[in-house]
């Protein structure tokens, strides 16, 4: 066990924990967050995605000790403090881009990460950027529409 300091969704957390514990387990079990989800534990499905310094990354294999001194944002931290949804969250709602919703965290976080890197995205670039996230319900066509809707230059 050792002391680990995490910055998650703008708050600092001091934890006494096995430093090898994957970040995902800490977010879910110690910080009671539901956004990042367990899907495979081997970086194959993207259900566990979180933003680390603005980039979408897997949390299922990252030891919590490596997440120190970084800004971690989960699905819960995307909305404004007044509760206004992030534009990507809003566009997913507008397009009803989900079915069971279990992959939604990975989809939204990856889309936000993608839009953080570039706002000039064609279909091929979106597909490439979303390649890491699996959906079994087949909601990907809606996810594509939602991401395109969230691109600022596509706003009517």
């Amino acid at each position: 066990m050792s002391n680990v300091v995490l910055n998650v969704n703008g708050q600092t957390h001091r934890l006494d924990i096995d430093p090898a514990t994957p970040l995902l387990y800490v977010l879910r079990n110690q910080l009671y967050l539901n956004g990042p989800k367990f899907g495979c534990g081997m970086q194959q499905c993207g259900a566990c995605m979180v933003l680390i310094d603005g980039k979408a990354q897997y949390s299922c294999t990252m030891p919590v000790s490596l997440a120190e001194k970084k800004l971690i944002t989960t699905l819960e931290g995307l909305a404004s403090t007044q509760g206004k949804l992030h534009p990507v969250q809003q566009s997913f709602l507008d397009e009803q881009a989900a079915q069971c919703g279990y992959c939604l965290n990975g989809m939204v976080i990856s889309a936000v990460g993608l839009l953080n890197t570039s706002v000039h995205l064609d279909d091929a670039a979106i597909k490439k950027g979303m390649q890491r996230v699996l959906c079994r319900c087949g909601s990907q066509a809606r996810v594509m529409r939602a991401i395109k809707r969230a691109i600022p230059t596509n706003k009517k």
Partner: peptide, 21 residues
Amino acid sequence: VHREDFKQMVVGAEMYIQDLR
């Protein structure tokens, strides 16, 4: 009609069996 459950999903509310604590 827009699904009510999507509003909770998109903000990471507790809703799946995996979220039971």
